[in-house]
Amino acid sequence: MADSKSKAPVTTQTNPRGIPAAPFIDNVSDYVSSRDEVEPTLRSFQEMISKYQFMEVNTQRRGQGLREKIPDIKKTLEMVRFLKLRKEANPDTDLETNFELNDTLYARASVSPAEMEEVYLWLGANVMLAYPLDEAEKMLAEKLTAAESSLAHCEEDLEFLREQITTLEVATARVYNWDVVQRRKEKADGKGDDTK
């Protein structure tokens, strides 16, 4: 393993969600003091790149899930607001509507104002709960805000992860090139190791 005292100080910078920043190597000879440290350093960089790529894939999946969920939340919130407005505007008139049973199957329904006191919302995992209209609107608005915030964080994290991967790829190339230059110098000086 590389001698820790020969390395530049390791920073513990992270993004707001705790993803650590990749080390930036300003001067390779300060970071790697001898050729014996090159291989462990390159392996360490490859390991970090793999970890960042793993985080990137998971963040992309989470973002995709949120992109699919947000339109459903918006649609449900709009429907709750519509029912609320309709109930307030026409408290004595039934609401005639078509509602979706499946992707291509609709049913006609008549909803009385007394039945518009509450809505039933799917919460996931085959769970449905009844909510009063005001409570449903508040809960859906909070869920929408949280989902949009999470999506913004995912996009920010993806950008940060891509920057860290690029930083490590550049650092890998710089360490590798430094090693090539050192080998050439040793070979020119007659100290080269013919086995490498």
Rank of each mutant, 00 (worst) to 15 (best):
M1Y: 05
V10W: 09
Q13C: 10
N15F: 04
R17W: 06
P20R: 04
V28T: 01
V32Q: 06
R35G: 15
L42W: 04
S44K: 07
V57R: 08
Q64M: 04
E68K: 03
D72M: 04
D72W: 01
I73R: 07
I73S: 08
K74W: 07
L77E: 11
E78M: 09
R86Q: 14
R86L: 10
K87E: 12
E88Q: 07
E88Y: 05
E88I: 07
T93M: 05
N98I: 10
N102F: 08
D103P: 02
L105N: 09
A107R: 10
A109T: 05
S112L: 09
Y120M: 07
G124N: 05
Y131G: 05
Y131V: 10
E135K: 03
K138Q: 15
M139C: 11
M139Q: 13
A141G: 08
L144Q: 10
L151I: 09
C154P: 05
L158E: 15
Q164D: 14
T166I: 03
T166R: 01
E169C: 03
A171C: 03
A173D: 14
A173H: 15
N177I: 02
N177Q: 14
V181N: 09
R183G: 12
R183Q: 08
R184N: 15
K185D: 15
A188I: 06
G190E: 14
T195P: 04
